[in-house]
């Protein structure tokens, strides 16, 4: 009991010194508190309270108010995810609709492929921008970073411009091989068809390449060029120099870029909403809310999705060699 008392009085003392500081050190504490309070208030009312309410809502028995307590949304969600697992799922949950399993799976594989491609392209672009003396480099950087400011719906529209039924590239391609543009358009195709997914793939790349490039440019800025020059002058080819000198230095940056770009991929929503090509998790939110108003289910899905992205980002950045370069 005594320790508890002294602890509480310690906290009270500290609060008192923050409010009425006597020493310079106490005043500094008060300043830090004053500087941090606005952010903490916004984070509390803008993020923590709503997220707590969302958790509570996911266990509600009603879609319109927080009532009762049930885990049925989670039960349905996890049963559906397990039912998606091949062989085992069908045996254990033959009756369950594996729809949530499939949306998570779609988010994961599609996000992984687009991430790997954008980071690979990002490495090439960052390499060229950093190592070669390209003309108008500043303009190139501005142009490549321009799409970062565009929302996903605009990225989707860009794909319609390029690959839609009236799109430039689809029409050019159709003209070259002599078919109807409708047959080769990548947008406006039925959801899940290979052409539609390819269109969405380009839509994701449109948003992700600039972000990956931005991250990798920060990494490249820190590469030790002396070692590269030494390698070259000792007879290493450009490829060997990259493979054995540059790559080991940028590897942590690449891992960091993979993690953050994958995070971006998971959160893309507007592009999917316009192109309607693949049912990923974010697209499922729209159906839960706009089609059948099932707020507990949407909340449960959001909670699981959020927990996953949070765990993935933090564990990834913490337990791999990942480094995110500050630029």
């Amino acid at each position: 009991m005594a320790t508890v008392d002294s602890e509480t009085s310690g906290v009270a003392d500290r609060a008192a010194t923050v409010a009425l500081p006597e020493t310079e050190r106490d005043r500094e504490r008060r300043r830090i508190a004053v500087l941090a309070v606005p952010f903490l208030v916004l984070a509390a009312f803008g993020a923590f309270v709503p997220l707590a309410e969302m958790l509570r809502m996911s266990t509600s028995t009603s879609s319109f108010a927080i009532e009762g307590f049930t885990l049925s949304a989670y039960r349905e969600l996890f049963a559906s995810i397990l039912a998606f697992v091949p062989v085992v799922g069908e045996a254990v949950f033959p009756e369950t609709d594996p729809v949530y399993g499939s949306v998570f799976w779609n988010s994961l594989w599609f996000g992984a492929i687009t991430t790997v491609v954008s980071v690979a392209l990002g490495v090439g672009i960052a390499h060229a921008l950093e190592k070669y003396d390209l003309p108008y480099e500043g303009t190139l950087v501005t142009l490549i970073s321009f799409p970062i400011s565009l929302p996903g719906i605009v990225a989707a529209f860009m794909m319609i411009v390029l690959f839609g039924t009236t799109g430039l590239l689809s029409n050019a391609f159709a003209f070259l091989i002599g078919v109807d543009p409708n047959a080769v358009a990548l947008t406006g195709q039925p959801a899940g068809s290979p052409l539609a997914v390819l269109g969405l793939f380009f839509g994701y790349l449109y948003s992700m390449i600039p972000r990956a490039t931005f991250l990798l440019r920060g990494t490249y800025a820190e590469v030790n060029t002396d070692a590269e020059e030494a390698a070259r002058s000792l007879g290493a080819s450009p490829w060997e120099t990259f493979r054995y000198v540059t790559l080991p230095q940028i590897r942590p940056g690449i891992v960091g870029a993979l993690i953050l770009t994958f995070r971006t991929a998971l959160a893309i929503f507007g592009t999917v909403l316009v192109l309607k090509a693949l049912s990923v998790v974010t697209f499922r939110f729209d159906q839960e809310i706009q089609v059948g108003f099932d707020l507990p289910m949407a909340s449960a899905l959001a909670a699981v999705f959020f927990a996953f992205t949070l765990a993935f980002t933090f564990l990834g950045l913490r337990y791999t060699s990942a480094e995110v370069a500050e630029t």
């Binding site: 997220l51 969302m54 927080i66 939110f285 909340s299």
Partner: peptide, 11 residues
Amino acid sequence: PGIVLGIAFLR
């Protein structure tokens, strides 16, 4: 993510 925050704001 914005979409998660949106759902959290609804209720």
